[in-house]
Each structure stands twice: as structure tokens, then as C-alpha cells.
């Protein structure tokens, strides 16, 4: 029973944003899951360096891709996050005075930046499990698209994130529940500042663990040891020196042994040089 609970919790993690990627639980050997996801944000405002919110030309980013985990051993899990189709655009700017088109909108389509990770279970038994992972961010997206070079489907830099995840499962009344925390250090290249990543997540299962409700807090702090922002021509999720603290719920439902779906959104409650509109994600998965 306990193993089943842990697997379900791990599944629920996997349904969530890839940042958590299953929390502290590695996949058992030969087990895994595959998820087709759609993530998007449409933003007409952003957090400024002083923490205020200013308007901006509406930008949209849509990522359609796959996320997978596979247990190479009982302790070692391979993880891939691959936005196979990434679309970025900004809106037309229309004069409110003359109705004329002042700046035509543009869009680019490409593959996005791909993350490859290896997660190793340091403590896999007991009340609290602990894992470490190394994620390599491959800059396969377009970092300077559009006529002005300010449309991106990637940040153009190779980064390495070393992360530690600790998780625990417990009972909340009759329901199975879990919580997890993580911290990570992201080494970025090409003049981008390094980052400290942190997060907290908790979830509770209903309907015999077919339905999971999850709450999540994620944060990124920049060490601001890279180039000034002005040397770049990028905005928001691909910009340099961005910071944010986001919160968001997720609901994940499994309708049979193998198949399920999830939906979530997240919104930054504070930040710097980051979009101030919510992001959304939906996905369908297959696990075995």
C-alpha cells in the first residue's frame, strides 16, 4: 500500500510542472510515463525592476511538447522535457487615434529549449525521501527571432541546474497526501546571471487517488552576476536577471490504469522583468 501511495504521489508530481519532476521520488526501474502537454502564457503586463507592474505589447508563447520520465535503475531516473513546437508572437500595435497599423505583429515557430535530466535517489526509503538531479538546458530554441530579434522560443544559452528534492507522503484524514520542497542552483552561460531556484508543493488525493489537487509555490532569484539586461534584446521568460515568486494550483485526474490528464495555472505574485499574467498548462499522459 505504501509503495502504491508513493507511486501515485510520484505520478502526481510528474503531472505537475517539470520543475518538480516527481519530487524526491525516482521512478522504479523500467517504470515511467509520457506526457503530451501544452503550456502557454499571453502577457500584456510585466513586473518591473522596482516590483511594479507596467503594460507591454501583448506577447504570447505557446509550447507543445513531451515530458517523460523513465527508471533506468531503482535509483536513477532519466527525464526529458522537450517543447517540440514553440510559437512566440507579439500583437499588432494599432493607433487609437487613426486606427492605422503602427507596428505589425510578428510570430516565430520553432523547437524550444530542451531539458535533459538525470535524477538520483539519495534516500529512497523512510518517511522522507531525497534525490538530487542534474538538468542540462539545451539551447535548441530561437533566441533572436523576428525582424527586431526580440522574439524568442529559447534563451540561447546552455545551463546546468543542480537540484535537491525532498518529499514525504502522509495521511490527511482518510486521504493520501504529500509535500515536497526543492532547492537548486542554475549555472547559466553566455552572460546570463546564475540563479537560485526553490519551491514548495503539496497535494492531496481523492476518489481513491484518481484525482489529485495540488498547490505549488515556485521561486527564482538571480545572483545578478551576468551582463546587464540592456545588453540583451529579450523579454520575460527568456530575459536575463529575471526573478519571480509564483503560486498556482493543479488538478490531475487518472481515468484508467494508464491514462490521465491534468490542468494547471500559475501566476507570479512578485517578480522582476517577468510577465505578470498567468501561465496555463494542460496535458494528457500515459504511464506504465
Amino acid at each position: 500500500m505504501k509503495i502504491r501511495i508513493i507511486l501515485l504521489v510520484a505520478f502526481a508530481f510528474a503531472m505537475s510542472q517539470t520543475t518538480f519532476a516527481g519530487g524526491g521520488w525516482p521512478q522504479p526501474k523500467g517504470k515511467g510515463y509520457f506526457k503530451l502537454f501544452q503550456w502557454w502564457v499571453i502577457a500584456d503586463q510585466h513586473f518591473t525592476t522596482s516590483g511594479g507592474i507596467d503594460p507591454n505589447t501583448t506577447n504570447g508563447i505557446f509550447n507543445t511538447g513531451v515530458y517523460g520520465e523513465y527508471g533506468l535503475t531503482n535509483r536513477l531516473t532519466g527525464v526529458i522535457y522537450a517543447p517540440l513546437f514553440s510559437r512566440a508572437y507579439f500583437n499588432n500595435t494599432i493607433s487609437g487615434t487613426t486606427d492605422e497599423l503602427l507596428i505589425p505583429g510578428e510570430a516565430i515557430n520553432s523547437i524550444g529549449d530542451v531539458d535533459l535530466s538525470l535524477k538520483y535517489g539519495l534516500i529512497t526509503k523512510g518517511k522522507i525521501v531525497l534525490s538530487t538531479s542534474l538538468k542540462l538546458g539545451l539551447p535548441l530554441g530561437n533566441s533572436s527571432g523576428g525582424s527586431a530579434g526580440n522574439l524568442q522560443t529559447g534563451d540561447g544559452e546552455f545551463n546546468q541546474l543542480l537540484q535537491f528534492d525532498a518529499s514525504t507522503s502522509f495521511k490527511l484524514g482518510k486521504a493520501n497526501a504529500y509535500s515536497s520542497i526543492y532547492v537548486g542552483a542554475n549555472n547559466r552561460t553566455e552572460g546570463f546571471s546564475d540563479e537560485f531556484h526553490y519551491g514548495l508543493e503539496a497535494g492531496i488525493g481523492f476518489l481513491e487517488n484518481r484525482l489529485y489537487l495540488i498547490g505549488r509555490v515556485l521561486g527564482v532569484k538571480s545572483f545578478k552576476n551576468g551582463n546587464l539586461n540592456t545588453e540583451a534584446n529579450t523579454t520575460s521568460i527568456f530575459a536575463n536577471n529575471t526573478e519571480y515568486l509564483s503560486v498556482g494550483p493543479e488538478v490531475a485526474y487518472q481515468w484508467n490504469k494508464n491514462w490521465g490528464a491534468s490542468a494547471s495555472f500559475a501566476t507570479a505574485i512578485s517578480g522582476s522583468i517577468i510577465f505578470a499574467n498567468p501561465s496555463y498548462s494542460v496535458g494528457v499522459f500515459y504511464k506504465w
Binding site: 500584456d44 505557446f62 508572437y89 500583437n91 499588432n92 500595435t93 494599432i94 487609437g96 505583429g105 510570430a107
Partner: peptide, 10 residues
């Protein structure tokens, strides 16, 4: 994910 219009007060 289509391009829309932003109307500015100018």
C-alpha cells in the same frame, strides 16, 4: 496563438 491587436492611446 494568433496575432491580435493592441490599441494604444497616441
Amino acid at each position: 496563438g494568433c496575432i491580435g491587436d493592441d490599441v494604444i492611446f497616441d
